[in-house]
Simulated assay, not measured.
Amino acid sequence: MNKRIYFGLYGLIVILLVLPFVVPNNFYLDLAVRMAINAIIVIGLNLLIGFAGQISLGHAGFLGIGAYASAVLPMHFGWHPVTAMLTGALASALLAALVAKPIFKLKGHYLAMATLGLGIIINIALRNEAQWTGGPDGMPVLPMALFGFEIGSDRQWYWVVAALLVLTVWGSLNLIDSPFGRALRALHGSEVASQVVGVNVARYKVSIFVLSAFSASIMGSISAHYIGFISPNFADFFHSIELVTMVVIGGMASVYGSIVGAVLLTALPQALATFEGWETVAFGAILMLCMIFMPRGLVPTLAARFSKGDDK
């Protein structure tokens, strides 16, 4: 990684270390936890959309699988929360592997509709299996316990998700600079050209989809344990669109853009709390304006402008 990338990672670590000591109350600490959770999810989704160029409009379905695995397995079968979380993540990865090859033969609108259909199927299954999932009403989630220690307070969860965010950013930056990451960027640019130079396009598409689904499922489990209650809204269409919006607003093919997009759009509903029902309108308006004035997203656009300024 170059010096600028390291500087960004070190800056993130400093912010995460200082943040819990400067926020005025637990409300803002809770908001910071949710921002970090969304940032990790969006980084994985950006690897799929921004770097590999493969759209997914049903990604919240994998969050739902992870969340319900962490709720159902400990509640009904007595599984340890960590075992349940890993089982949900493996189930999500397996499902992604099974559907990825036929889905990613499609392109454009057809690919978007196929991923949307996958998310809808998962959401319907979670709603209909009321005996296990509580149906539309949802169900409680048992606390997360590690080595006999129960993670309960907002501050404890903050340090957990902050550590996961740093590891995710570090791992993603290294992945992007690896031969695997260069192959992803190549197939985003041109699948035909990638095949000509020997890139196995199908394998890389499946691999990044599986990785993104696995990451989303893990964070679905983390989010479920943190909140303590889940409903099928975890896996609905609007949540998927919200995640894609975070990718686009922050910046396609930008790890730090994913963080910025997650922070902005997690905070936005709180800022619009007095205008109940207008959050979706705001998401749509911001996305539209971003696509018009900053089609590359906030972070890549600002980075390009500052780079031009440095060259003068």
Rank of each mutant, 00 (worst) to 15 (best):
residue 20 P to S: 03
residue 271 A to G: 14
residue 213 A to Y: 05
residue 130 A to P: 03
residue 19 L to K: 10
residue 123 N to A: 02
residue 212 S to I: 13
residue 242 E to Y: 12
residue 18 V to M: 07
residue 114 A to P: 02
residue 25 N to V: 09
residue 308 K to S: 12
residue 10 Y to S: 05
residue 284 G to T: 05
residue 243 L to W: 03
residue 139 M to Y: 05
residue 53 G to V: 01
residue 256 Y to T: 03
residue 206 V to F: 01
residue 125 A to N: 09
residue 269 P to D: 04
residue 224 A to W: 01
residue 194 S to F: 00
residue 6 Y to R: 15
residue 247 V to Q: 08
residue 201 V to K: 00
residue 164 L to W: 01
residue 26 N to Q: 15
residue 196 V to S: 14
residue 205 K to F: 00
residue 23 V to I: 04
residue 117 G to R: 06
residue 64 G to H: 03
residue 224 A to K: 00
residue 133 T to R: 05
residue 16 L to Y: 01
residue 12 L to H: 02
residue 232 P to D: 07
residue 135 G to M: 12
residue 240 S to P: 06
residue 225 H to Y: 04
residue 178 S to E: 08
residue 126 L to I: 15
residue 147 F to E: 06
residue 177 D to L: 11
residue 184 L to Q: 03
residue 307 S to N: 11
residue 81 P to Y: 03
residue 284 G to D: 04
residue 192 V to L: 05
residue 128 N to R: 13
residue 122 I to R: 03
residue 302 L to Y: 07
residue 127 R to V: 15
residue 73 L to H: 06
residue 44 G to P: 00
residue 164 L to N: 01
residue 268 L to I: 08
residue 290 C to E: 06
residue 111 L to A: 10
residue 151 I to C: 08
residue 58 G to L: 05
residue 198 G to N: 05
residue 299 V to Y: 03
residue 173 L to A: 04
residue 52 A to V: 10
residue 219 M to G: 03
residue 290 C to L: 10
residue 63 L to S: 08
residue 177 D to M: 11
residue 59 H to L: 04
residue 210 V to P: 04
residue 160 V to C: 08
residue 20 P to C: 02
residue 154 D to A: 15
residue 14 V to Q: 00
residue 160 V to P: 01
residue 270 Q to G: 13
residue 45 L to I: 15
residue 165 L to S: 11
residue 297 G to N: 08
residue 56 S to G: 01
residue 216 A to P: 11
residue 84 A to R: 03
residue 126 L to D: 10
residue 155 R to S: 09
residue 44 G to A: 13
residue 100 A to Y: 02
residue 183 A to C: 05
residue 47 L to S: 10
residue 260 V to R: 06
residue 32 A to C: 08
residue 27 F to M: 13
residue 229 F to L: 15
residue 231 S to R: 10
residue 92 S to F: 11
residue 150 E to I: 15
residue 301 T to H: 14
residue 112 A to K: 14
residue 30 D to R: 13
residue 289 L to M: 14
residue 179 P to A: 09
residue 235 A to W: 01
residue 237 F to E: 05
residue 203 R to A: 14
residue 66 G to H: 13
residue 264 L to D: 10
residue 28 Y to D: 02
residue 311 D to H: 13
residue 7 F to V: 10
residue 49 I to E: 01
residue 16 L to Q: 00
residue 263 V to D: 07
residue 171 G to C: 10
residue 257 G to R: 09
residue 48 L to S: 02
residue 97 A to I: 04
residue 55 I to Q: 09
residue 33 V to Y: 05
residue 43 I to E: 06
residue 189 G to R: 06
residue 117 G to W: 07
residue 210 V to Q: 06
residue 231 S to Y: 08
residue 45 L to S: 10
residue 61 G to H: 09
residue 183 A to K: 04
residue 134 G to H: 03
residue 130 A to S: 14
residue 121 I to L: 13
residue 221 S to C: 04
residue 47 L to G: 11
residue 88 G to P: 09
residue 278 W to P: 00
residue 64 G to P: 01
residue 156 Q to N: 04
residue 293 F to N: 02
residue 240 S to H: 10
residue 290 C to M: 15
residue 94 L to R: 02
residue 180 F to R: 10
residue 70 S to C: 14
residue 8 G to A: 11
residue 17 L to G: 12
residue 229 F to N: 07
residue 179 P to L: 08
residue 274 T to L: 05
